[in-house]
Design a protein around this nucleic acid. Structure first.
Lengths: 352, 352
DNA sequence: CTGAAAGCGCTAACAC
DNA sequence: GTGTTAGCGCTTTCAG
């Protein structure tokens, strides 16, 4: 900028004025400056600019896993909103690891991001207190912050969604509905379990721990849990799966258990083979997923993009000076019947 | 930092030393400084730090769409590598818009990112010349830069993959193989078309323009193209789809055309309905996708994570001072037979 | 309309 | 071991 000023025969400040389109610069002077800028290939250093101005025009986003469709949709929506506000976006994946979440957040804060959108992995966010004190704003998305951390949060109606999904199966005649959820320490998993229980209670059905299997959405553990569930003396006739990954892996596991779909190595069977088999089970999945429509899988759909958009809008409202009380948004879910959740239970043999 | 120095009764530089774990600080002094830091809630401003040091320890990633699984996998891998190098990551989606790509890249450059990873939407990258001159490094991923832009690039073997997929269908007896590709202006789409043509030529089959349909991966246009293809007097017996989105939308379109899968509103049919129907067609899809295994869809798989990892590794090699000649990596693809690509053509009626 | 001086928060280079 | 000085590239304040 100094060089440009020298080349144009003006003061530093005049260059600054031209670069920032500030009013009150003689057109001829501005032209000379522009010429010098082009000649020297000058480009403003926004890092220095933000240092001086106090705001970095950037926000940080911490999600669970950028490669997961749910979070990548959320991420995309945040990105869109940020760009719309002239903000750049730092992204990081916590991998469901509280320490990594904290490290990322603090790294973003050290860069003095104006705000944060956090899908928390941990449950202790006291580490954020100094950042809040320093004026950084944060909005939590998908899951709330830990106790003692006052911050805005945007959630899905996890309880209501799981309740609706479970009630849907019950309404179609099922009395033994199993729930395959994520790790119980994860907020959404716990909430969905709660919704499942509420629906059972509302229908006057007993809560049977033997019908609940919580754990990571990994093929091996799901196959084990499903084998156990289906091999029991009084097996479930319907399944509620707790998130997208779990639903997909459950379909895989069921296909391999019931043998009604080819493994990866089988060839030549398409399309005359049986469809991915549920072995007579009804199924409702939490979260919509690619090709669920073709597979005919009934789901309780969240709207991850809306989750991201809402969180980002809220953040920018805060950054614009909105000092209202901390809020908690809860976005509705939508049950989409596609066949798998509307199958009746098989005729019961045990009681005539 | 000044306040901390004053509180600890030391000079600014000593605080800097402590904060950066520089050697040569008396343990007792360091303790006093740490105490002051904790008391005042001081946190280093990395923005100022990077301004002074010349490197921002951040890189920028421009992809086509963060919500697309292909790019989100690539993105995740880049993120991982960046974090591993102590770098933060700016992300932006170009939405297949050259102007947006340019704006994002230049915005990242204005923040003085150390390097860039770009999945280009445009074909003119002369706008990067001043940035290269200023020392910014860039690696292109998935698609090469436009003419006149000397930069490293990491690609998939698009030609080879499409050739292999087409040859696979031909080897299973198909002589009329259609190609459903993306917009021809997109590098990967053009390359895959080339691979398709090469395979036809190698097998001595004629290239029939009527069997090729290039366009956006949108349901309406795919349905139209498929209807046209299948309604022709000499319809294809096999399909090669040009990318993941296209494959998925083709499955949808075929299901709705052949009527062998329920629409979203149909219920109660699962799992006794017919599987997503190909109406007797064989199919190979470019790109693997979620549940392709269950659906029995044969694919030519790319490895987007490896694409991202390779690009990021290359970038950090460059940032570490590697001044070798510009390189062009080409990662192999892998044909995964799952059934849909191994179906023989129906017996021909036209020639006995 | 334009310019000079101060300083955002930090580190590099050199004193002591 | 520790402190002093200068300056990264920009904007802000105030003076001309």
């Amino acid at each position: 900028m100094n060089d440009v000023a020298a080349a144009a025969g003006v003061a530093l400040k005049t260059v600054s004025r031209v670069v920032n389109n500030e009013p009150g610069v003689n057109a001829a002077t501005a032209l000379r400056v522009h010429a010098a800028i082009d000649r020297l290939g000058y480009r403003r250093n926004d890092s220095a600019r933000t240092l001086r101005r106090g705001r970095t025009a950037s926000i940080g986003l911490v999600i669970e896993d950028a490669a997961d469709v749910f979070y990548s949709s959320l991420s995309r929506a945040v990105e869109e909103t940020a760009l719309h506000h002239g903000c750049l976006l730092f992204t990081g994946s916590s991998q469901e690891d509280a320490a990594r979440e904290r490290d990322l957040v603090l790294a973003f804060c050290a860069r003095r991001v104006d705000g944060l959108i956090i899908v928390p992995a941990g449950t202790d966010h006291t580490y954020l207190a100094p950042e809040f004190e320093a004026g950084t704003r944060a909005v939590f998305a998908d899951r709330p912050p830990g106790a003692g951390c006052e911050a805005d949060v945007v959630l899905s109606d996890n309880v209501g969604g799981a309740r609706a999904g479970t009630a849907h199966l019950i309404a179609h005649g099922h009395r033994r509905v199993a729930f395959l959820g994520d790790l119980p320490r994860i907020f959404t998993a716990a909430e969905r379990l709660r919704g499942y229980r509420e629906a059972l209670a509302a229908a006057g059905l007993p809560y049977d721990e033997g019908l609940v299997a919580m754990g990571p959405a990994e093929p091996a553990r799901l196959r084990a849990d499903l084998t156990r569930l289906l091999g029991a003396s009084d097996p479930p006739t319907a399944l509620l799966t707790g998130n997208g990954r779990t639903t997909v892996e459950t379909l895989r596991a069921l296909a391999s258990i019931t043998g009604s779909a080819p493994g990866p190595a089988t060839t030549g069977a398409f399309p005359d083979r049986a469809p991915p088999g549920l072995g007579g089970l009804a199924l409702v999945g939490f979260d919509d997923f690619e090709l669920a429509d073709l597979l005919g899988v009934t789901v309780v759909a969240q709207d991850p993009a809306r989750l991201g958009r809402t969180a980002a809008d809220l953040l920018f409202l805060r950054l614009a000076g909105d000092g209202g009380a901390v809020t908690r948004f809860e976005l509705p879910t939508r049950l989409i019947p596609r066949g798998s959740g509307e199958r009746p239970p098989p005729p019961r043999r045990d009681r005539g």
